[in-house]
């Protein structure tokens, strides 16, 4: 069981971006172990490397150095087809900008991952309808993204992320484009799914509302982990944390 305890592990992650003739180190040696079923928030100011870490964990971008292990599989060892399998079955993605396919209805958007997984279309539609009901949008399944509010679009995106029953849901600033109330609803929904379905949630955010629901908070600064806090330690220190220079 010990080998199954960690769903994500990163070792010495380094990611550099070249901008003109300058090289910027977005990640500078990140070691992080995430347990199965955890709700993790990766917090830090803009430009701290949150999204870069998100992309590396999700297999959306290759790090320059270091490794990412998903369920003990080294992602660097996978070929394109295996990576596609991993993105399809093991990881669900949620983005700040929702990234729904604009010409498709909510139902078609949620069904898409099941198509890529090779699920028969009736089963895929049934699964998508079930998930749209779970996120509270069952009645609006035939609406296009432009006909939905930001919060509703993010719910569709959450349903889509869960389509193939992934073990990890990665969320990059899921509340970044939402107002306070809608953002809180989305956070509560993610927490509920985490509790009920046992899915590990890793969320890059600078939304302090996330602190309340996270099991652990990983603070990132200048491409390094500044500190990792357990939830139990945090409750008393919220006031202090507000003093952090968050943008």
């Amino acid at each position: 069981m010990a080998s199954n305890e960690y769903v994500v592990r990163t070792k010495g992650l380094v990611k550099e971006f070249t901008m003109g003739d300058q090289t910027v180190r977005a990640l500078n040696g990140v070691d992080l172990d995430i347990k199965r079923g955890e709700y993790i928030s990766i917090m830090g100011p803009s430009g701290s490397g949150k999204s870069t870490l998100f992309n590396a964990i999700g297999g959306l971008d290759k790090p320059n150095e270091g490794s990412v292990f998903i369920n003990d599989v080294d992602m660097a060892q996978l070929d394109a087809s295996e990576l596609a399998y991993l993105r399809c079955h093991t990881i669900g993605y949620i983005f700040q900008t929702f990234n729904l396919i604009p010409v498709m209805t909510a139902l078609e958007n949620v069904t898409l991952p099941t198509v890529f997984a090779g699920m028969p279309s009736d089963d895929g539609i049934e699964r998508a309808m079930y998930l749209l009901n779970v996120v509270g949008l069952g009645a609006r399944y035939h609406h296009r993204p432009t006909e939905l509010s930001g919060g509703q679009q993010q719910r569709v995106a959450i349903a889509r992320a869960l389509a193939n029953n992934p073990s990890i849901v990665l969320a990059d600033e899921p509340t970044g484009n939402l107002d306070l109330k809608t953002g809180t609803e989305i956070i509560e929904l993610l927490r509920r799914l985490n509790k009920e379905q046992g899915v590990t949630i890793i969320s890059a955010t600078h939304d302090l509302k996330m602190v309340d629901v996270s099991d652990r908070i990983v603070w990132i600064r200048d491409g390094r982990i500044a500190k990792i806090e357990e939830r139990a330690d945090i409750d008393l220190k919220i006031g202090e944390m507000d003093g952090e220079s968050l943008h």
Partner: peptide, 21 residues
């Protein structure tokens, strides 16, 4: 769809993604 309430299990095997027809 009975896998919904299951805890996702570890020890996964990464396969090749299927080629859609």
């Amino acid at each position: 769809m009975n896998a919904d309430k299951q805890m996702p299990t570890g020890g996964m095997k990464v396969q090749k993604q299927i080629q859609l027809p």
